[in-house]
Structure formats: C-alpha cells, structure tokens
C-alpha cells in the first residue's frame, strides 16, 4: 500500500484539455500533498468536471502528465484506482438495491477499508435506519449522502468530488464538510469542485480558478 510511503502526492504538469475544439484549460500545473485540498472553481462549462475526470484517470489529457507518487497515473492504472475514490455528478448507486446492498457491493469491488463497515459508513452519513429501504424510496439528498458514504468504506487516500453538495441541505453539507475535514486531518487528500463555498482550513487549501 502507498499509505506508508514517504511522499504521497498528486502532481499535475502542464495539463491541457480540449473539448470539441474549445481549449478548456492549458498549461495547468499543481501539486497536492497529504492533508491538502484542491478546490477547483470556475464558471459552468469552464472544464471543472473535465479536470476531475482527468484526475481520476478516466479521460486522457490532451497534453501534460498526471503523477501519483511520481508515477504516471495511466501507467499505474489499477494501483492508482485503489488509492482514489470518486463521486461524480451521477450518484453511481443502484436505485433497485438497498443502501446496504449498494455499499457492500462498492466495498467489495473497491479496496475495502477493514476499519469501516458498510453499517458504520451509513451511520456516519446519518442514514442508519434506512439500510433495507429500496434506494428508490430515499430523497435526493439521502441518495447523495449514500453516494458519499462510498468514500468511507475504501482505503482511498485521494477523494475526488464533483459538486458533492448538490441536493444536500445545510445539515447534510455540514456532515460532509466534517468528513472532509477528518479525512484531511488523517493525511488524506481532496480535490473538489463546488458552487457552494467549501469550508476547509485555508492554510491547507489550494484554489484554482479555471475561468481566469
């Protein structure tokens, strides 16, 4: 595991992203270390989601490299995916399964964290009591929290969150911010886009604005 390696860092070098002829961003470089957060800002269509998908290793950058612990993430492949967790626009939960089934599935398909069971993750996101209700019957905010519960059950060092606060109420946002804070304190990393201002320790936060 990379958990004990001395330098765990995500580094982007001169990233360029072109979508349908439009250069969304170019020459983007940054470095993210343990306990640091990256907040990506910008207008709609400025390439925030594209950047996060590239950081996940889903989309190829049109130029530039992304390094995890000094190695190209596309070369690392599965080893990199074992260290990351992604929650995108779409929740990635099956509406026909119960929350518990959803999480158990995600847990065994990921890199399971022995210290956090599916039940504990549901509790942490205040979904206890909804274990066996079909996910279809949950509210949008609860479904979103279920998606975010996925972050806890795998041993992911890097969380990549695309608009995590969508359809969450104030209370839900507070829960998620608390989780993010804990994750950073424990040496994790975070890359996030949000329309809602994110309350994180300013000293540990890098901000990138793609519209500028």
């Amino acid at each position: 595991m990379t958990l004990n390696k001395p330098v765990t860092a995500l580094e982007a070098r001169e990233l360029t992203c072109i979508r349908d002829d439009r250069t969304l961003f170019s020459g983007l470089s940054f470095r993210l270390q343990s306990s640091q957060a990256l907040v990506v800002e910008g207008r709609n269509g400025s390439g925030k989601t594209s950047l996060l998908r590239t950081l996940c290793g889903m989309a190829l950058p049109d130029a530039g490299d992304i390094l995890w612990c000094g190695e190209d993430i596309f070369r690392l492949g599965a080893d990199y995916h074992a260290c990351t967790a992604y929650v995108g626009h779409r929740d990635g939960v099956k509406l026909d399964l119960t929350p518990l089934e959803n999480l158990s599935f995600a847990r065994s398909l990921g890199n399971p964290d022995p210290d956090c069971t599916a039940h504990q993750a549901l509790e942490a996101l205040q979904l206890a009591g909804f274990e066996d209700v079909p996910t279809r019957n949950l509210s949008a905010g609860q479904q979103r929290r279920l998606a975010l519960a996925r972050l806890l059950i795998t041993r992911a060092r890097l969380w990549i969150l695309d608009e995590p606060f969508t359809s969450l109420d104030k209370h839900g946002i507070a829960i998620v911010e608390e989780l993010a804070h804990k994750h950073l304190v424990n040496g994790g990393m975070l890359a996030v886009t949000s329309h809602h201002p994110v309350n994180l320790d300013p000293g540990a936060t890098t901000r990138i604005n793609l519209s500028e």
């Binding site: 996940c56 290793g57 889903m58 599965a78 080893d79 995916h81 074992a82 990351t84 992604y86 995108g88 626009h89 779409r90 929740d91 990635g92 939960v93 099956k94 509406l95 995600a106 398909l109 990921g110 890199n111 996925r150």
Partner: peptide, 11 residues
C-alpha cells in the same frame, strides 16, 4: 446512474 464510471475506477 453513474455505476459504469465506478466500475471503470475499480482496482
């Protein structure tokens, strides 16, 4: 529902 992305990012 986004599950396919999650499969892609599985180790």
């Amino acid at each position: 529902d986004g599950s396919l992305e999650q499969l892609l990012l599985s180790p």
